[in-house]
Nucleic acid binder design. Structure first.
Length: 809
RNA sequence: GCGGAUGUGGCGGAACUGGUAGACGCGCUGGAUUUAGGAUCCAGUGAGCUUUGCUCGUGGAGGUUCGACUCCUCUCAUCCGCACCA
């Protein structure tokens, strides 16, 4: 008989809701387990990636619950952001209405999957009860010097008409809309994430289990680089500038120096250079290029000679000073010593402008032709005065550094690639920055009692140069919280990554009306035991959240160092060879499977299809398999119930052992996130159960109960609806109230095994014999069965319960 | 260029600590059942061959070992991330 999955799912979802199975009391002192799936952007429809994420999460929730943990598994919405605003521009629907409709649609879809979420703790970033506290945290950062406003060259998306964080610029284009990104100088808000560069890097060694690629990406992004900084003097002037290098050992090879076009010293140079006109021309030309053009299209390096010279601090040599846009103003000091002999970029530039190339490192074992290419590998120093014959890189750098430090013109220096996080956005649908511009007091934080600074109602969401919030007079005009005079508000809103940098804290105390969260609760529950989400957040969200927790720790709001202990990144589900996307029209809608195959079959298939961290191709036939599997289980339980009962018989022992072995393997696989093999173990077990049921007409009551309880228990995290229904049907009890089954260590081994008989390492025979048979006996069996005489072989290798290998003759 | 992974049947993937490669599922083939289709059940399914059995086979080439998907060296391919970072 086929079971009615729709009915069963509805019934059990209501049942779990009534028994408040997912609700977590965060205050009780018990073994806590914070299991978090990344909260979604409410796009309106659940896609397969969500299904995979939330199925994995739910398997963990249910498994940990059964192991006695007080599990917190909350859900919420990353509900600020551009799509709602763009829709408002197009259709005039208010972003709040638009967003909330989508949330309610997605919430009901999520519920159909049957995952346990504590909906009592639901949060939504756009909700004023949430963003009020985002503003509160902003003010705390501001008061502690971790949020500041500054003129800075920023990435401006010409289509979204807003600035973007560096992290949101992909190959010179806007991550969202793909439009060109220009450099613009604007007064913008930043968070001082760079202050935590070193700690964010170090922390990667302290956290728990994270995918190695995510750690590597963060390391890469932080980009620590150790070297030295020293100052160069422009000859015949009192102008000095600093340069950063990791290759101080090549200092004798400096044949010119380069400033980035945006370098502050360039303004001074314009006043004195014989070449000012050309320099100005060059700078305006290079400014008009987008960052992308500057970096990749113009492979050929360009620059302009200043006509000025600097002196090499190690030997006093006079070298020309150039301005070139292959030097980036925002890395290091925005100025370099150029060593064309031993640096590829400098080499390329020197070739273009025919500048001197001097070789200062040599490796006698390799032939190096400095006229053809630069030499960047290790060797020993030449043409370097008293430093000749020192080893390149570390040794020579250290010696040269000593001299520079001695003369007070240089020092050891560590540089990071990570720059401060630009958080202002000239958009409507985000959290307003709670700051006031006062002509007396300067930038003043809104007083905490006045929070939230509510988003104003406006008629027109289109943004021009200003943020849309500037259109509301009521919003802008206010009084200074300090001195009371009339002044104006900030009109920018925050990057939505600010919202998601602390949502996991709010979940723990979502009803708190006095504070964003209670410190004690956070200390009890963080770090999050298991965080699960897509690898697309490997850098941005995870790095920002780590920064937030460290900053809030230093402010004194909590006492933990890292937000996420273990991180699991699930792989992507593709269809038709590429990523599912609406524009490609290759979206597989999960919702239809709820009705055709049921949530349990979908969950099982998505777990079974591949190791969860692998990307995988959606295969429609596959879900048929898990559906069939569930049907077979259902049928087998019916058959089992119909069996007559008798005293325990020896034939029961095999199935009992098989179940016991499956408890062992499924537990092991669950602990290692190997859900695909866990599901296959359950399928194998069902095959054995089928064989057992086909071969017997009687079974003991005890065996019946053993089979029922354990199969339902093992199935429960994966297919919770059906296992709950089966258990209730045959025992009148609720499986969710029972602990995870234990296995009997003594009953894992089969009484017999298939011996493999090899001759010279090749399999020749097999025979089923008793487990634990000794080598002597096995040799006798081989002699008897296969006419193998021990004395004919030089060597015999015997591995108990596995193989015997006869070697040589 | 740098960093991280991944390569096993027609497909998704298994394989414990080095011990029968291909579990489990999809697909396919044959059979049973059915008026038919679907569903279900049973059997088969890495390749080749001179088919009681033999040979080859885990991207490729070597190596260690009685024995290698597994360990070592080199190499090729694919995917992802970063990339003029001084």
């Amino acid at each position: 008989m086929v079971f009615n999955h729709t009915e069963i799912e509805k019934k059990w979802q209501e049942q779990w809701n009534n028994q408040q199975l997912a609700s977590c009391n965060v205050s009780i002192k018990k073994d806590n387990f914070y299991n978090l799936c990344m909260y979604p952007y409410p796009s309106g429809d659940l896609h397969m990636g969500h299904i995979r994420n939330y199925t994995i999460g739910d398997v963990i929730t249910r498994y940990k619950q059964k192991n006695g943990f007080n599990v917190l598994s909350p859900m919420g919405w990353d509900s600020f952001g551009l799509p709602a605003e763009n829709a408002a521009i197009k259709t005039g629907i208010h972003p709040k209405k638009f967003t909330e409709e989508r949330i309610s649609n997605m919430r009901s879809q999520i519920k159909r999957l049957g995952s346990l979420y504590d909906w009592n703790k639901e949060v939504a970033a756009h909700d004023q009860d949430y963003y009020r506290w985002t503003q509160y945290l902003f003010i705390k950062l501001f008061e502690n010097g971790l949020a500041y406003k500054e003129d800075a060259p920023v990435n401006w998306c010409t289509s979204c008409k807003t600035v973007l964080a560096n992290e949101q610029v992909v190959e010179g284009c806007c991550e969202r809309c793909d439009a060109n990104v220009q450099q613009k100088n604007l007064n913008q808000w930043f968070f001082k994430i760079s202050e935590y560069s070193e700690e964010l890097l170090q922390g990667l060694d302290e956290i728990g289990d994270w995918p190695s690629n995510v750690k590597a990406m963060q390391e890469n992004w932080i980009g620590k680089s150790q070297g030295a900084e020293f100052s160069l003097n422009i000859l015949n002037t009192d102008l000095n500038f600093e340069v950063f290098t990791t290759r101080l050992d090549t200092l004798y090879g400096m044949t010119f120096a380069v400033l980035a076009p945006e370098h502050p010293t360039v303004n001074e140079i314009l006043k004195i250079s014989p070449n000012s006109k050309e320099i100005e021309k060059y700078i305006s030309k290079s400014k008009s290029k987008s960052e992308f053009e500057r970096m990749s299209i113009s492979k050929k390096k360009t620059g302009i000679d200043t006509g000025l010279f600097v002196s090499n601090p190690i030997n006093g040599e006079k070298v020309p000073l150039w301005i070139a846009d292959y030097v980036l103003v925002n890395y290091g000091t925005g100025a370099i010593m150029a060593v064309p002999g031993h640096d590829e970029r400098d080499y390329e530039f020197a070739k273009v402008y025919d500048l001197d190339i001097v070789q200062v490192i040599i490796d006698e074992r390799k032939s190096v032709n400095i006229d053809k290419e630069p030499y960047v590998d290790k060797g020993i120093l030449i043409n370097s005065g008293e430093y000749n014959n020192l080893k390149s890189h570390d040794e020579a750098s250290e010696e040269i550094l000593k001299q520079l430090t001695g003369n007070d013109i240089g020092e050891k220096k560590t540089t990071f690639r990570l720059r401060d996080w630009l958080i202002s956005r000239q958009r409507y649908w985000g959290c307003p920055i709670p700051v006031i511009n006062c002509s007396n007091c300067g930038l003043v934080a809104e007083s905490l009692d006045n929070l939230p600074v509510l988003l104003p109602e406006i008629d027109d969401y289109k943004n021009s140069e200003d943020s849309p919030l500037a259109k509301s007079k009521d919003f802008i005009n206010t009084n200074c919280p300090k001195c009371g005079i009339q002044c104006t508000r900030e009109t920018d809103t925050m990057d939505t990554f600010v919202d998601s940098s602390w949502y996991f804290l709010r979940f723990l105390d979502s009803d708190n009306t006095n504070l964003p969260f209670n410190k004690e609760i956070i200390n009890d529950w963080l770090p999050i035991n298991q965080y699960i989400g897509g690898v697309e957040h490997a850098i941005l969200h995870l790095l920002y959240s780590r920064f937030f927790v460290k900053a809030l720790r230093d402010i004194g709001m909590l006492d933990v160092n890292e937000p996420f202990h273990n991180l699991f990144s699930q792989g992507m589900i593709n269809f038709g060879g590429s990523k599912m996307s609406k524009s490609k029209g290759n979206v597989v809608d999960p919702e239809s499977y709820f009705s055709t195959h049921g949530a349990d079959a979908l969950r099982l298939y998505i777990l079974f299809m591949a190791p969860p961290s692998d990307g995988v191709e959606w295969n429609d036939g596959g879900i048929e398999g898990t559906k069939r599997f569930l049907n077979k289980i259902w049928d087998n339980f019916e058959k089992l119930a119909l069996l007559e009962t008798n005293e325990q018989h020896e034939s029961d022992l095999d199935i009992i052992r098989k179940i016991n072995q499956t408890i062992f393997t499924v537990t092991k696989h669950l602990d290692k996130f190997e859900f695909n093999t866990a599901v296959s173990d359950l399928m194998k077990l069902n095959i054995e159960l089928t064989k057992f049921l086909n071969s017997t007409i009687k079974v003991s009551k005890k065996t019946k109960e053993y089979i029922t309880f354990n199969i339902c228990s093992l199935l429960y995290p994966f297919a919770p609806h059906m296992s709950s229904e089966l258990f209730y049907l045959y025992t009148n009890q609720n499986i969710s109230e029972f602990s995870w089954p234990n296995f009997d260590k003594e009953n894992l081994t089969n009484p017999t095994y298939e011996l493999v008989v090899q001759i010279n390492g090749k399999k020749k025979h097999t025979k089923i014999i008793n487990t634990g048979t000794s080598q002597d006996e096995v040799e006798k069996i081989c002699a008897l069965e296969f006419e193998i005489e021990t004395k004919n072989y030089k060597n015999i290798i015997f591995v108990e319960d596995k193989i015997i290998n006869f070697i040589g003759q």
